[in-house]
Design a protein around this nucleic acid. Structure first.
Lengths: 332, 332
DNA sequence: AAAGTTTTATGAAACGTTTAAACGCCGTCT
DNA sequence: AGACGGCGTTTAAACGTTTCATAAAACTTT
């Protein structure tokens, strides 16, 4: 149906090998032949068959990326950063969303394996990294995104969530707040538990400060809204005077409920801080104070590490940790 | 390096054909053989080589999607809807972002062609659909997303932007506003010019109402902010009393500038309406009135049409038009 | 028991590309 | 004149599947 390298060869009166050379190593072909072949290629609208190519030389120029949530701007920015960096080196990125679902993550993983991806970028859902180790043994490089590697089995671009949690809590304490609620979950995810730990560390340093955990089932706007409503229903003395939301989505949802509760002013009665600094945090109903994570940079750096691992498989794995940064706005 | 179907065959003491049958048509293989083969597959951790598979039977189960802006939630929702629907039918979606750049769009197009995608979903950047026609002649089905097909060359899932523009403007006029500014651009994009036309239609029906165009270079938050500042700088009598932003991103940016201008109240002095109803519109500093587009449904429907075209190439192309819906919030 | 039918397994060809080795040609050097 | 090297080109094998024609074996029917 579509023109193949053989059709081009016939039409240009050369062998298939020569056409292939025009495509891959043009300097090996004499100028006249090269031009003749190129004009036939244009004429026929020939495009390389990537499947045959991949099959022949065993590796593709595609890398797989698995994010936790395809609609969270934090992750779409990571994806954007990754794609741009990958494109620079002639790689394509296949993006998949696990929705924090281990099964879906594994489906994607085997899909990627079937595609013979050159490497995989993954923000893992659970604590169990064994499917990934399995892949690694099979020689597919893997880089962990937004997650530290417990041991040094993987290269990783981590974000210092303990530090981030600490800074966030310190900021709330610094504005005079003492009854802090941490809203996030499920706590099984290491990002969340790290942020919690960081916050706990900061709170311990202030004698009369307290920290409590309000657990969500997912880090979504809807969950944030729900928790916000519950807090608004509480009698005034039982309410926290500050909320540390585990990400901006949750914070945005909470803001929404709290703002419309009639006896709550933000930040005077309840201050709210989020995490990630998604683009919409700035435009929220009350501009949201948050811990900025350099999402694009995370994506780009991950690709960088992965390309490294692809090209020099014997190199040691590398762990890069990026620090979040406090951005103060009206909500605190 | 990695196990192939031949390794499996040898280990299971059968021919390669049989292994292939176990994989593709298990009912043709006797239960004992099948189990033996399957256990060897598990043992060896064998995964199909998709490249070889594609090569052999000429078609892949991948479809390509090109969106205008990978960070606009409207498009990420379309992508989400498309992926989910595609997954149901065993297809994978390759998502690319053109950033409204014709060159990048063509790069992606040829990338997809090399991947032998089964079909392409595209929200085209310019008015020139000839590269797409070219593809179509090459028998790759193409479906236009968020864009009507001028003639019937393509199937398309369009959104009735003229109607949307009209409803939006009518709403503003209905709240007593008379000096309306349309903020959007570049006007070359058909979505934008349709919305503008719709608005013009509504304004014409009201004798003392005026409509003017303020052109942006891109539909981004940054551009919205800039225009907002310019409007705030204008002397009061020259200001519009209502703004129709061509999408929510622009609206959000404008809101940001206008809210912090000291002598402007929203919606009393200036009302703002957006377009798309991205999830963050609801949580904006002033909850944003907007025209809701059913993004997920657009994605899912597009895939539906595309699968149809893939399976029955001779069928007539179909045009589906979805209508947006007015969502009134505090900004008007 | 022979002929026919169904079930199950095999073997080889083909998909389109890349690549290493081989080849022929021409000019240069001994 | 013969050997040598470069250059440009061709040839053929390989990559891992699927498919289809064929063969062998196991039942059914006369």
């Amino acid at each position: 149906m579509t023109a193949s390298i053989r059709d081009v060869a016939r039409r240009a009166q050369v062998s298939v090998g020569t056409v292939s050379n025009v495509l891959n190593t043009p300097e090996k072909v004499s100028p006249e032949t090269r031009e003749r072949v190129q004009s036939v290629i244009a004429q026929l609208g020939y495009v390389r068959n990537d499947a045959a190519r991949k099959l022949r030389n065993g590796q593709s120029h595609t890398i797989g990326l698995i994010v936790l949530n395809g609609t969270n701007p934090f992750f779409t920015e990571i994806a954007q950063g990754a794609q741009n960096r990958a494109l620079e080196s002639g790689y394509t990125v296949l993006v998949g969303t696990s929705n924090e679902n281990v099964k879906r993550e594994n489906t994607l993983l085997s899909l990627f394996a079937e595609q013979q991806v050159a490497g995989i970028l993954v923000s893992p859902t659970g604590d169990d990294l064994s499917p990934l180790c399995h892949l690694k043994d099979g020689k597919t490089p893997v880089v962990l995104v937004d997650r530290g590697a417990a041991n040094c089995a993987f290269s990783a671009v981590a974000c210092d969530d303990i530090y981030g949690g600490e800074v966030a809590a310190e900021h709330l304490l610094g504005t005079g707040k003492r009854k802090i609620a941490f809203v996030g979950g499920p706590i099984t995810s290491s990002q969340i538990s790290d942020r919690w730990q960081g916050a706990a560390k900061a709170v311990l340093k202030v004698p009369d400060a307290t920290l409590r955990m309000i657990e969500t089932t997912a880090l979504t706007v809807t969950e944030g809204k729900r928790i916000g409503q519950e807090i608004a229903k509480l009698p005034v003395e039982k309410r926290p005077d500050a909320v540390f939301a585990a990400n901006d989505l949750v914070a945005l949802g909470m803001l929404q409920s709290l703002v419309f509760a009639k006896d709550i002013r933000i930040p005077e009665d309840i201050a709210v801080i989020g995490y990630d600094d998604i683009s919409y945090a700035e435009f929220a109903i009350v501009p949201l104070t948050t811990m900025r994570q350099p999402a694009e940079k995370i994506g780009a750096t991950s690709v960088e590490l992965l390309l490294n691992a692809i090209e020099r498989p014997r190199d040691k794995t590398r762990q890069i940790t990026l620090k979040p940064e406090l951005v103060v706005r009206a909500s605190t």
